[in-house]
Design a protein around this nucleic acid. Structure first.
Lengths: 217, 217, 217, 217
DNA sequence: TATGAATGAGAATTCATTCAT
DNA sequence: TATGAATGAATTCTCATTCAT
């Protein structure tokens, strides 16, 4: 709401390219997460970033490329954290526990990630497909999960023949769906799903489910 | 007294309130599914329905209430099909198989349902919460799933202590996530996920997973 | 908000041409008074009249002619009441008192009349000019006011040379402006203008003003 | 360091926030005056202002706030002119003459003001009430009129006990009603009311009326 | 006389994006 | 690097009015 021309250009940001870009990215992340790609507003992103709208276009050509950048960052971030998880160091059952807990905790700590992916899928992964960077970020977890399964099988703890990709998707899905659809689910079931207790219950259900399947008696 | 000769109206749309409403709803369903609530265009819905744009507002006050109506219909539809599924008639293991297969098949046959739910969750179930129909939408499957689990436990086939709501959400999640996120997943994994073979593989993985967990050795 | 086609045509109005027309007119009067010509909605008028919108067009070609009809009625009504006022029967000073009080009371009892006139003037009396009926309704008060002034002058009670049309307009203006602009005036002056006391004060001020001018010492 | 050569921008509107806002305001004033709030068209305002429609929303959030701004300007303007009128400098009778003449002339010179107020009253002073400026809009004339009356009473020229607010409203009403309702009045009375002669006649009638009331014999 | 269904032309407002400095 | 001014193309929604029975 500009009302008067402020002749004194006083309050311009100290010039700092990196900082501006970071601010824009994080503002955009919030905005896209909250409203989806279509619902996000460039105006609001600028406001959130404390930056002139024009500057967004200066750094990120347009809305879609901004979204791509945000998406890349989101993937980079989760891949980075996934890398911390040293599944190969621990025994198979514990490794699976950790993987499930990590997935669950990450999604809870980063609800934006879920919304972002939903948006991207609504758009048929259009941005992802044209981003070489994001595509190179194949999850390191697949490899280590394969290793874990292998070790488990060899030590006769796990059942054989489990496809690590299927399992990875299943673990993600068990957590993702619950959190991403929490609003409709809790409305339909009339049940609080995000309190501390339900959260723990969900985590242990998921763990039981996966281990109950994997572990041989 | 005989009716007037029913002239078949040539170019103009036959006056039929019910039909118009149905056409609008089904056009809106497609549009919302394809573009989400925010991305949907009233113009396109009118065009898809072969109806004057104004007529949409005549029957459904505005975009949001149209979305609510679409959502209600979608829920009614899936609930109706769920009711067909007589899980109580078959033995527990078969019942679980059927439930998983039904969920999988329904989501594949009705991809709009997934997108619709994603949109609704992006909007924090705003429409669902204000829909009086929402109450009656509680899935009948929860009850019958509870019954199935019960029978399974009593006949010592299933493990005890499984929360039917958690299990229901898990089954849904296993199917939902795979299908709803298929674009990003197949891009990231560089793997076709929707061909006939991957579909069967996913279904059997889900079934193995759930039954592997439920069934006692 | 039609939602379903009511196959049973049950609740149609008993057919009564006069009554319908009257209902429409009075609904339109309210609507035009409340929102002005531009702000009035045919839908709301139909609703207010408890009549199908189409019926309005059946009786009154379109919005403007409906407005004209309403205006004509309003003029007829005030002229009718003015005729009741037998100024020639009472002595001049009392006659003036009565005229002022009548004007004041009529405007208070018929606030729609003021809004209607405002609308009509916004439209440069477009409707009035094409209504031969309304134009024939020259106020009877002008004649009797002329008579009153005449009698007053002859009996040396009133000053001479007063133009009855000017005086008539003045009396109307004193009341009209106060009432028609009551919202802005009371906002600006921070003063209640429509309570019982302010009303009496205004009436006596107007009377004092006019008689103070007319009556010779 | 010298400024860049100030190229006179050829076809495109010179960038000048203040000027644009002024142009919009004055175009809006005309439009609102001519058609009322409801009848005014944003398109036409843009055109009148020689400005892109979008710019109106850039500076004035929406139609109503634009109307509010116009109203505030109109009040500021009349208040400014009222302040020029130094009623305290001249003797009471002359002061009253000046006040009446000023009111009359101002309304004639600014017919938009009347229409604007009519619109605002149709909307129950909605805009005025939410304008913080409204407070400061109290007419300075009330104070000086009170002073004039006081002086007149003390020098035994004027009658006592006259409420300056009532008198102010009366003077305004005498002029306002005549001008604001000129279209219906001249149609009804079949009399030209705005020619040079009728104007003078009205002014002298108003002056006679008010002074005839105020001045003691 | 009476009504529900349907519409075209417009209305306000929104939004990503570009211009000029 | 940074910004305020400005815009064209939509987009939702409104409204008087007509169609068909």
């Amino acid at each position: 709401m500009p009302k008067k021309t402020s002749r004194t250009p006083a309050e311009t940001r100290p010039r700092n390219a990196d900082r501006s870009q970071r601010d824009i990215l994080s503002a955009a992340l919030q905005e896209f997460a909250e409203f989806g790609l279509g619902g996000a507003r460039m105006d609001r992103i600028a406001e959130r970033a404390g930056v002139n709208k024009r500057l967004i276009y200066y750094y990120f050509e347009h809305k879609d490329s901004l979204f791509t950048a945000v998406l890349e960052h989101a993937y980079e971030n989760i891949r980075g954290e996934e890398r911390q998880l040293n599944l190969s160091q621990v025994e198979p059952i514990e490794a699976i526990r950790r993987l499930i807990a990590f997935t669950w905790d990450y999604y809870i700590a980063h609800p934006e990630f879920l919304t972002l992916l939903n948006s991207e899928n609504l758009h048929r992964a259009r941005h992802l497909k044209q981003s070489s960077k994001a595509q190179s970020l194949n999850s390191p977890l697949i490899e280590s999960l394969a290793g874990v399964l292998d070790r488990g099988v060899r030590s006769s703890v796990f059942r054989a023949g489990v496809d690590p990709v299927q399992l990875y998707i299943s673990i993600a899905g068990l957590a993702y769906f619950y959190l991403s659809n929490v609003h409709t689910l809790s409305t339909i079931f009339g049940r609080e799903l995000l309190g501390p207790k339900p959260r723990l219950e969900r985590l242990s259900h998921m763990t039981d489910l996966v281990l109950g399947y994997l572990v041989r008696e």
